[in-house]
Design a protein around this nucleic acid. Structure first.
Lengths: 169, 169
DNA sequence: AAGATACGTCAATATGGCTGTCCCATCCTC
DNA sequence: GAGGATGGGACAGCCATATTGACGTATCTT
């Protein structure tokens, strides 16, 4: 390891620093795996003149119908302005609609139109076929490990949000 | 594993289609895990006025010194123009240098300068601490599964490239 | 000598983020 | 009921990162 001593000056070897190979492998597999998975849907998106940002919104709206905009902002961690543009596009194409919240009338609750449901399902099919075949090739035990490691990458303050997503399946 | 015996159409319900929950979970964990990991280095990059695109180049040059530009183009799967700008920025900051190939004098071989090595190591420390703690929390068996699933997401035609990266650690 | 390859470069464009500012409607608290 | 906090929308401008297409030069291969 040709790391200049000025950077990581650990006099004693910490276990966290004995893993360069494993860490680099994880970084690389995450990079390639993630980018290849997202590419699986580009074609479907392009047919509607949409990009990946639109898909992310579409996906989470599909996942939690009647999601308030503020919740989507937290999930995506982008600014209101950036999301506004995306939602305008999705609305213009008749894929997403909003209605006023019952409990809090300031809120707009997002949900997919029937066309939106169909389109999201079509995109999801591409994700499913990629991920399901990776799952099948790796085996169920590996899938569990895959989830565990990824969960460990999510900071504590975001974890509740992610788990909430997966509760009401 | 329950992979249909060929690519053929299975009239009965394929196991691949009985996994919506698992697939959604994977999509979400990949999204959050990947984005959170990449955020870990944004601060360090911003100090040099660089972005994530610069880090990706820096990372793979660190990984394979004397990498020809054409190889980096394949890894990153972006256009020559996009990469050109990134490499210009890295060169201007004295982080990356090129030299003419010995075997093929048309090639320019990329490598980090000493400053580049130090900077990459600093960024890598952030990645390492995130990933290593996720690894530690999940356990070694999970890490193996994590790798296996991600490998399954990489299309066959790219797999050789990724494996080549990990051979000469 | 001809063609392919590796790299560089110019110009124009798209996407998806950002900041800052201001506004309106609604809710909550005192 | 007044005042402040919150949810959402909108305008203007900017930045980072990617794209396509076309063209040029050096070098390698045949």
């Amino acid at each position: 390891m040709a790391v200049p001593s000025s950077v990581s000056v650990t006099p004693t070897a910490s276990p966290l620093f004995l893993r360069e190979n494993e860490v680099r492998r994880g970084v690389e597999l995450l990079f390639f795996g993630y980018t290849r998975l997202t590419r699986a849907i580009d074609e479907g998106l392009a047919e509607h003149g949409l990009g990946r940002a639109h898909h992310r919104a579409l996906y989470f709206i599909a996942r939690q119908p009647d999601l308030p905009i503020s919740a989507l902002l937290k999930i995506l961690a982008i600014t209101k302005q950036s999301l506004g543009r995306v939602l305008t596009d999705l609305g213009d194409r008749g894929l997403v609609e909003t209605r006023t919240g019952n409990i809090d009338r300031r809120q707009k609750l997002l949900r997919l139109t029937p066309e939106g449901v169909q389109f999201e399902a079509q995109l999801f099919d591409a994700l499913r076929s990629s991920l399901a075949s990776a799952y099948a090739a790796a085996g169920q035990e590996s899938v569990t490990g895959f989830w565990r490691v990824l969960e460990g990458l999510i900071p504590a303050e975001d974890k509740a949000m992610v788990i909430a997503l997966q509760k009401d399946i």
